[in-house]
């Protein structure tokens, strides 16, 4: 990888200031995607601003009926958190199955959500649980955050500080994973709170999104059988060497059915 200037600020304000001074800066959280991307020279920032020294970005706090997870909290910490396990066990289970143990010891929730890889797990949970993304500037609702492939509502000098997840009555995440990378070929997160069902889908399309057709059916009949009538538009699906568009469309319904069954 090309060389760069390294910044290791100890505060959010310091990180933003470093970014604003940089010619072509990048924030680096756990680095598990950013460093491979730089090695491949798909990115060659002039400056990297490492967020690992900012204590205020780590940690998990329960606030009434929601749980706030600091951006620099690792997947391993989310998976092992007794608070997350108690309030949203599906979220802890999701974190426990990202990548592999060494990746989970470094990779962070903020880095994953900010990167918005089309096959990442967390975006499905953020969408389905109706989470709020807290940043250095504002709060962004899940429905407004993910805007396209690797694109989010974040501005260049804006970083995620925490993500707040409201508790659901029942929730489950089902992933059909690539056995080598463990990224989602299709992953579906279903969350039910009262009579309101939300479905977050990752891996299927260029950007994680809500499954509005699936929600429409599940809101009136929360059962796997109700999904039979739903048409998943094949032309919107990703297609690659791992799975065709038709296969992904099929998987969306299968994973949703399994998630609904796990919620019941």
């Amino acid at each position: 990888m090309y060389d760069f200037s390294y910044h290791n600020p100890d505060s959010v304000a310091g990180a933003v200031s470093a970014m604003n001074k940089a010619e072509d800066g990048k924030f680096v959280a756990g680095g598990q995607t950013m460093l491979p991307t730089m090695k491949h020279r798909l990115a060659s920032p002039s400056d990297i601003i490492v967020l690992g020294g900012i204590a205020e970005l780590s940690g998990i706090t329960v606030d009434g009926d929601s749980i706030s997870i600091g951006a620099m909290t690792t997947h391993a910490e989310v998976a092992a958190s007794s608070d997350v396990q108690a309030m949203i066990p599906a979220l802890a289970a999701l974190a426990a199955n990202i990548g592999d143990p060494a990746v989970r010891n470094c990779g962070t929730i903020g880095g994953s959500v900010a990167n918005n890889d089309p096959a990442a797990d967390y975006p499905a949970a953020v969408i389905a649980l109706g989470a709020t993304v807290k940043t250095s500037k504002r709060e962004i609702s899940a429905d407004d955050f993910f805007t396209g492939m690797f694109e989010t509502a974040l501005e260049e000098d804006e970083l995620i500080t925490a993500i707040s997840f409201p508790k659901a009555d029942a929730a489950a995440y089902m992933k059909f994973e690539n056995p080598a990378s463990r990224y989602a070929i299709v992953g579906v997160f279903v969350a039910k709170t009262g009579d309101d069902v939300r479905v977050g889908i990752t891996g299927a399309t260029p950007c994680a999104h809500r499954g509005m057709r699936l929600e429409g059916v599940l809101n009136s009949n929360f059962s796997g059988d109700a999904l039979e009538s739903v048409e998943i538009p094949v032309d919107k699906m990703n297609a690659d060497i791992h799975a065709s568009a038709e296969y992904r469309a099929h998987l969306v319904k299968v994973m949703t059915r399994r998630a609904v069954a796990a919620c019941s």
Partner: peptide, 15 residues
């Protein structure tokens, strides 16, 4: 004390 992949970590992160 935690396992990491040292090919995906900058030396400066281990300071």
């Amino acid at each position: 004390g935690k396992s990491v992949k040292s090919c995906t970590m900058l030396a400066m992160m281990a300071d």
